[in-house]
């Protein structure tokens, strides 16, 4: 049975605690933009990363367990992932970092920003997970693990041209990557479902400028949730993106990049 060819011990980039990850490096001038993806396939972010690379030095890893990145067994929580990137930032000496968290990656970015803010100049959250708002019966995020694939793609993309459609007709490696990403999401986010209760108490200390970007047609986490999240962050500005669902960086990559560039200036 075919599996994905994960990166080997000599491949990829060594991040913190000796963990090697598959990562895209684009652009060589400007401050570091650390792009933390969600559970989309890595090729879906290509245009967005290229757009950022005109202005920033972009590093976009696949988190442990996602894409072609192996996962050390000890790395089993979003806090663990955050520690890996913070350790790397410390060792690499980068300052004035633009930290961009996309969906699941937004949760990772929030965990990082509540731990250490000295190297972060600008935080960007795009349709982010991570924070529980409201009462126990409020569902902040649609249950992706209970939703059939075709319905899920309707919730994720405003324009179904971006969807994979019927999986039987999709390339095998594409579905393998999707399935591996789903599994990683279940490892980190099954319970509590895509949030850390602690963040609800600690994000009010994130005293860095924060841009909260949300797809107007996000069916996974609503724009209303995004506005409420932004209201909990002390220096946040909310920007809604029209004609975009849960992954605006995929559907409107240039628009998202432009907002980030404006915020970072």
């Amino acid at each position: 049975m075919q599996t994905l060819d994960l990166i080997g011990a000599e491949d990829g980039i060594e991040f913190g605690y000796g963990v090697r990850l598959d990562a895209r490096l684009e652009g060589s001038s400007g401050p570091l933009a650390l792009v933390l993806p969600g559970s989309e396939r890595s090729s879906e972010d290509a245009v967005f990363i290229e757009a950022l690379a005109a202005h920033f030095t972009v590093v976009a890893p696949s988190h442990p367990g996602f894409g072609l990145s192996p996962r050390p067994e000890w790395c089993a929580s979003v806090s663990d992932i955050a520690d890996i990137y913070l350790d790397w930032l410390e060792a690499s000496g980068h300052t004035d970092v633009i930290l961009i968290g996309l969906q699941f990656g937004g949760w990772v970015a929030l965990e990082m920003a509540t731990r250490s803010r000295s190297r972060i100049a600008q935080l960007v959250l795009v349709d982010s997970f991570g924070v529980k708002l409201g009462s126990p019966t409020d569902r902040n995020f649609a249950d992706v693990f209970a939703t059939p694939h075709d319905q899920l793609e309707n919730l994720i993309y405003a324009d179904q041209a971006f969807a994979l459609g019927e999986l039987g007709g999709a390339p095998e490696n594409t579905v393998l990557e999707m399935a591996r990403n789903d599994e990683a999401l279940a490892i980190y986010g099954w319970e509590p479902y895509l949030y850390n209760r602690r963040l609800g108490q600690t994000i009010d200390r994130i005293a860095v400028p924060t841009l909260v970007v949300w797809g107007a047609e996000d069916g996974i986490a609503s724009p209303d949730y995004g506005r409420r999240l932004a209201a909990h962050l002390p220096h946040a500005r909310f920007e809604q993106i029209e004609q975009a669902g849960h992954r605006p960086q995929v559907e409107r990559p240039h628009r998202v990049a432009e907002l980030i560039l404006t915020a970072a200036r």
Binding site: M1, Q2, H149, E183, L185
Partner: peptide
Amino acid sequence: PGYMPYQVRSAAL
């Protein structure tokens, strides 16, 4: 996800 190896799940999907 995770109940079976991801490649088995991928083939099933």
